[in-house]
Design a protein around this nucleic acid. Structure first.
Lengths: 239, 239
DNA sequence: CGGCCTATTGAAGCCCCTCAAATTTGGTGG
DNA sequence: CCACCAAATTTGAGGGGCTTCAATAGGCCG
């Protein structure tokens, strides 16, 4: 692995406090692999063999039944996924596919469990990571159960604006149908939700969203710190 | 605390593998308190001061905004709640109220964090508990996003039947409006969902539900092991 | 026994989904 | 770099699921 990438991974909260030897052990037997866009990295219901780290690119976590499919999370660099399944040696609850050409670090599950047992700092980091993941998911669940589609979109835009906005302009970094699925609605309904938001100070041109009247959007969205978390945009464990 | 209760708590997966001294430390400074029905134990947005253990009774975890309220979880003996908030020293994301007269053990957050640092077996148990909580919540989220109200009810009944059913009879252990909120619908809609299920082999008399044709209900519900978990009924960490 | 809360049923309407078709976008290969 | 093709997005129409409001019946607690 190139030292530039190793440094990025090392910076993750999950790995930052590890002993050097633990980190080396983890990295040594891992694979760093580059995937094109649209590749299935894992499939739900399969045993969890690797902990995955998104080093570059963008990954969609989703679940599917016969007829329906829904996006549960979108993971940006540098973020990890399926830690929980790895720890319990269980099957994945979610599938993952690349939304962009991506570089993924795959750490054998066995190694992760072993490192957890030998390095208490690592176990502590895992506790914090899992606690954060749990809270993030609870927030998603609250959003899903208590808000309308347009409200979920409005608050997503506000979080986007705060984290990555420039002069009230937000760039949607994924296909709209993916955003729709993430927000729990159909693509058609996302279009209509944007129409609804037009009367609350929002204009859309393609993937470029302009928030013209922030105050008006805030009134409509009624953001709630117990639901809207900066971390709920894209999962990034780092910084 | 009476030894009968102490034994119950000790049996929890979260506490089972602890050193005796760690367990004693945790219990020593804790409060065992009895509450009548309908009491608010914690309120969202307040700092997490105690880890709570439901020793007897029934507790509803819920969240509320100006206009809406939703039940996120129902916790039966012996189960714990708000572990994640305690660990990060953050505010609660959920409120809790007793649905029945309940006995609650309250362990100071400070003690939990300290015990985690000194007893590795405890930290490992916390990791497993959090991983399980995370996966349970992901399942809830999938259920919410991919299923209709009647399907959620049908699968809830099937899980109930498997865990607590007797001869195809399931007793609903909470008010129907609480069940409705837990399943993500209004009380009116729950009534109608039961009507829908009548044509799939389900009969209701008050809180007593009779599953007359299990095969028919299964066809309608299409249960999925990646969504329907025995643990998703009521949260019980024990056994 | 009275009063309040819960549960059910009906009516009306909104939100969201499905289906369909037109239009735009973006990726691919020449 | 351009043209083409497939896919994504938008818009319209129709319908179903769910909510809201309202009224009634039933049950529990003080």
């Amino acid at each position: 692995m190139r030292s530039e990438n190793a440094a990025k991974v090392r910076q993750l909260a999950l790995f930052r406090e590890l002993h050097d030897s633990t980190f080396r052990d983890l990295i040594e037997t891992s694979f760093l692999q580059r995937f094109p866009r649209g590749v299935n990295l894992i499939r739900e219901n399969e045993p969890a063999d690797f902990l995955h780290v998104v080093v570059e690119g963008l990954v969609e976590m989703y679940a599917a039944t016969d007829m329906r499919e829904t996006t549960l999370e979108i993971i940006a660099p540098v973020g990890i996924f399926i830690l929980a399944a790895v720890l319990n040696d269980q099957v994945y609850l979610q599938s993952a596919r690349t939304l962009e050409p991506s570089t993924i670090l795959m750490i054998p599950a066995e190694k992760v469990r072993h490192a957890m047992e030998t390095d208490q700092a690592f176990m502590r980091a895992i506790v914090m990571e899992l606690a954060a993941s749990y809270r993030r998911t609870i927030k998603d669940l609250k959003s899903q159960k208590m808000r309308s589609g347009a409200e979920r979109l409005a608050n997503w835009l506000l979080r986007m604006q705060r984290e990555r906005g420039r002069n009230g302009v937000v760039e949607i970094p994924v296909e709209k149908r993916v955003l729709a699925s993430h927000l729990g609605m159909t693509p058609e309904n996302l279009s209509r939700a944007f129409l609804t938001l037009r009367s609350h100070g929002v204009k859309v041109h393609g993937s470029r969203v302009e928030i013209e009247r922030l105050d008006a959007l805030l009134v409509f969205a009624k953001p709630d710190p117990l639901i809207d978390d900066p971390e709920n945009l894209f999962r990034q464990t780092s910084s």
